[in-house]
Simulated scan of single mutants.
Amino acid sequence: MSRSKALQSYILVRLLLAPLMLLTIATIVFLLLRATPGDPADAILGTRAPEAAKAALRSQLGLTNPLWQQYLDYLKDLLSFNLGSSLSSRGLSVWSVIQEYFPATVELSFCSMVVAIVVGVFTGIVSASSSNKFLDVGGRLFGIITYSLPLFWVGMVLQLIFAVNLNWFPLGTRFPVSATTPPNITGLYLIDSLLAGDLGMLLNTIHYLALPSLTLGLLLSGIFERIVRVNLKQTLQADYVEAARARGIAEKHILLNHALKNALIPLITVLGLTFAALLGGAVLTEVTFSWPGLGNRLYEAISLRDYPTVQGVMVFFGIIVVLASIAIDIINAYIDPRIRY
């Protein structure tokens, strides 16, 4: 089979598997919500609400129907892109909730990923190029510590130090309450501030975004540090690198122009897996820092047993993760044809 046909076959298989993965995610979310103890009517209306109101809410959610019928109705709504109406945000559809809160999560996730890649790749390169020396030991410790520390604990400690004691960073919001927010063009304050040409808005956005994104990015950077260090050390021992050294090429050029390019190939795969972890980490970060993103809104919906919002947001996150996974697999297939066999 030619390379182009093998690549097309690989991409087709990945695309055909995507609906199955989404169905699995949607089914797990549906079953976990129904298996959770407690009555959604009590969580939303309160235990002292009239029984008639509770019964009406259960009927609205379809909880009075058999489980199999609830599941079929749920899949039917998903196929028609109907996520329902949010019970904890009266008058808003779940799509409207996603549209309102998701830009803040995107902004936090993107800035955190940039921090994670820059810090992780840099420390990985420094550690691998200083094998068994002080910098290598420091890089390994950095990777282990950042990978193992609980995010919520680090977030609270950094808030106490830099926000409460030193008063360097603000907390609990995305923009100063007393200031005019950027015009709602994309929903991303960084981009909207640039489009508006307002430097003050841009600096305020960066100021409020800095602490949560640095926290999440630093803790995720340990993953990249370990991947880059291990693969770069293996690449530096390859025959073609030794041949480059024998030709008298400077070690700096060997590292950057020869070894690093091949060592970064496995990093692309890890990017897809880290993206999924980033969404989960963003939920914890948003709750810890009271960041007004979709993760924080999901946490509130879970607390209130808001079935439509939880199901809709989780499926939405699942779609993003599946699409990101497919994109990473396709990019890998173009870069490294061995993964198709």
Rank of each mutant, 00 (worst) to 15 (best):
L260T: 05
L15H: 00
S93M: 04
A26Q: 08
L12R: 10
K76E: 11
A128F: 06
L63I: 12
F275C: 05
I11W: 11
W291M: 13
V114R: 00
V115W: 03
L78Q: 07
F30N: 12
L7D: 05
F102S: 14
L151A: 04
A49L: 11
K76N: 14
L264D: 15
L15Q: 01
P150R: 13
N204L: 02
L83F: 14
F162G: 00
T105W: 07
N296Q: 12
L171G: 01
T186L: 04
A210M: 12
T47G: 00
P40R: 13
G138Q: 08
V115A: 08
L194F: 14
S89A: 07
L271W: 02
F102L: 15
L7R: 13
P212Y: 09
L271Q: 03
T27P: 03
F169R: 07
I265C: 07
I125D: 10
K5Y: 09
A196F: 09
Q60T: 10
L267K: 02
G281H: 05
F162M: 04
G143V: 02
I125S: 10
Y334L: 15
V177Y: 11
M156H: 01
Y101V: 06
R34D: 07
L294I: 15
V118T: 14
L166D: 00
L255E: 12
L190M: 13
Y74V: 12
P150A: 06
